[in-house]
Structures are given as structure tokens and as C-alpha cells.
């Protein structure tokens, strides 16, 4: 256990000594939420979820802020795990040679990812509350936090698949923005209510956030199992890629 905490402490140091990443963590989500809130006109929107019209009708600014909170959050989460993954991929063999076991390295990595994601989620939650009235704070926080975990795993998978940082970043940005800012955006997405959308990574966590804010039939915790299942599938994909890359 002490080895895991020691190693995660060193991983954390490698992150916070990179000024750019620190700036990214604090600036990007705030900037996206702020611009998202400013771009939304002051009017109510007809919003249908689970086949029912949400009543009272939400304002566009609320939807915009939720979506851009998620966009900022998943971008930062996936970029950080991608960065850590790219750095660690080359160092893992040497760490193993110095008697660190695979579970120790993975646990230390997970600990760092969870800590960072908690921090960003907390920051995003607090900042977004400027525009939102949240009915159920736990549901909202968990929705955001779980989406950050899902996209962290995406970042990790991409770090295994690409050779260059630039290509990895393009992929991360394309997937994150396409999913959270475009596809899941009820303000202009015509795919929003299509059945297959539940295959998209942010689908259930966004639903959780919406349910925690708007007055809806179902509770946010009905979606947790799907988010966790999605996470398990992504972890399995990562492990399979890891296995084939090694051999």
C-alpha cells in the first residue's frame, strides 16, 4: 500500500510540475462554461426526455451550461490520462524491472486519475452553479464525475493506440466535442432522441446530470449501472489492447 501511495505521489508531481497542464485544468473548463453560458439566448426551450416534456421548461442557458461543463470536464480528464499514459507507457517496463508489480502501477495510476477527476469535477460543479439550480447535488456531481472517469479511460486507450501526441489530441478532441457538445446537445442535435445514442460514452452521465437538475420521472441513480457497465467495457478494451500490444 505504501508503495502505491508513494508512486501515485510521484505521478502527481510529474503532473503538477507541468505548468501547461495546471493551466489547462483550471482554465479550459471555466472558459468553456463561460462561453457556453454567454452564447445561450435568454429563453425557455421545449425539452423532451424519456418521452415526456420537461416541465417547467428549462432555459437554454441551463442546458448549455450542463453540456459545456461536461465538455470541459471530459476534455481535461481525457487529456490528462492521455498525457500520463503516454509518459508511463515507456516507463512501465523499467518500473517493473525495479520490482513494482502491475497491480501496484495500475492502482497508483488510478488513484491519481480519481484524485484529479474529483478536483476538476468539484471545480466545474461549483462554477456551473452560477447558472444552475440543482435539485439533487449528489446526482449532478456523480454524473459529471463518472463522465470524467469514462473519458479518462478513453484517453488511456488512445495513448496505447497512437504514436504521436498531436494525433492523440486530435482524436480526443474529436470524440469529446462530437459527443458532449454536439450529439448530446438537445438545442440543435437531431440525433438526440434516437435509440442508438445510448451507445455514446457520455449518454448516461448526461442523463444523470439532467435528472438531477430538472424535474423528471426517473431518478438519476437508475443510470449509474449503465455508466459503470460502459466503464467496465472500456477497461476491458484497454486491457485487451494492452495484452496484444505487449505480445
Amino acid at each position: 500500500m505504501s508503495k502505491i501511495i508513494f508512486l501515485s505521489n510521484q505521478f502527481l508531481k510529474t503532473l503538477y510540475r507541468d505548468k501547461f497542464l495546471v493551466v489547462l485544468i483550471f482554465i479550459l473548463p471555466v472558459l468553456l462554461i463561460f462561453v457556453g453560458a454567454m452564447s445561450a439566448p435568454d429563453r425557455e426551450v421545449l425539452f423532451i426526455m424519456d418521452g415526456q416534456i420537461v416541465n417547467p421548461a428549462p432555459e437554454t442557458v441551463e442546458i448549455s451550461v450542463i453540456l459545456y461543463s461536461l465538455t470541459g470536464l471530459v476534455l481535461v480528464a481525457s487529456i490528462i490520462s492521455f498525457y500520463l499514459g503516454m509518459n508511463l507507457n515507456k516507463l512501465v517496463p523499467r518500473l517493473k524491472q525495479y520490482s513494482y508489480t502491475t497491480p501496484q502501477i495500475i492502482s497508483a495510476f488510478l488513484l491519481v486519475v480519481i484524485l484529479i477527476n474529483l478536483l476538476i469535477t468539484l471545480m466545474v460543479t461549483v462554477f456551473s452553479l452560477n447558472w444552475l439550480d440543482v435539485n439533487d447535488m449528489i446526482g449532478y456531481f456523480l454524473g459529471l464525475f463518472l463522465s470524467s472517469l469514462l473519458f479518462s479511460t478513453f484517453g488511456l486507450i488512445i495513448s496505447k493506440l497512437v504514436d504521436t501526441t498531436a494525433l492523440g489530441l486530435y482524436l480526443i478532441l474529436t470524440i469529446s466535442i462530437l459527443d458532449t457538445a454536439f450529439l448530446e446537445n438537445p438545442l440543435f442535435s437531431r440525433r438526440y432522441n434516437e435509440d442508438w445514442m445510448n451507445l455514446m460514452p457520455a449518454y448516461y452521465s448526461i442523463k444523470m446530470a439532467f435528472r438531477a437538475i430538472f424535474d423528471l420521472k426517473e431518478n438519476w441513480y437508475d443510470d449509474i449501472q449503465f455508466v459503470l457497465f460502459y466503464e467496465a467495457v472500456l477497461v476491458a478494451i484497454y486491457l485487451i489492447i494492452n495484452y496484444f500490444k505487449k505480445s
Partner: peptide
């Protein structure tokens, strides 16, 4: 580890052993 000092790198690998 690029973002760790020389001493910290020694500690990471030494601690592993």
C-alpha cells in the same frame, strides 16, 4: 521521469526495490 528531480528518480526506483 522528466518532471521529477534526479533525487526523486533515485527514490522512485529505489523504493520499488
Amino acid at each position: 521521469f522528466d518532471n521529477l528531480t534526479v533525487a526523486e528518480n533515485f527514490h522512485v526506483f529505489g523504493r520499488g526495490m
